[in-house]
Design a protein around this nucleic acid. Sequence first.
DNA 1: AAGTTGACAAGGA
DNA 2: TTCCTTGCCAACT
Length: 110
Amino acid sequence: MSASQDELPLGFRARVWAEVRLIPPGRVLGYGHVAARIGRPRLARQVGWAMAALPADTEVPWWRVIRSSGHLALQGDPTRGVLQRGLLEAEGVVFDEDRVDMGLFCWDGE
DNA sequence: AAGTTGACAAGGA
DNA sequence: TTCCTTGCCAACT
């Protein structure tokens, strides 16, 4: 049996992208949460790497993936950091200072 | 082939 | 409470 769960035929990144694409508008998910959903709970950092590898014209809603603390990862990046907050607020995500209330906006996978 | 990097997370001071 | 250190493992050089 071709392992379909342990093996990653399309690469780890492809799985991450597929999962992120499932996040509905107005919701966010932590890097660790995304990693856990694809069966790799310890790979939060690699999820971030997968996001960094996304092409500019991607359909993957990368902006809905934030830190579990509610802070944005690219907060210090003047290019994508500011863009990410704008995209989230446009979807209805409310920021408390520079933080998102994970208890309200974290997607439970419904 | 081996070492380094890193859009993170949890724990300790 | 915030800040800093440690561990994690795929991708890159």
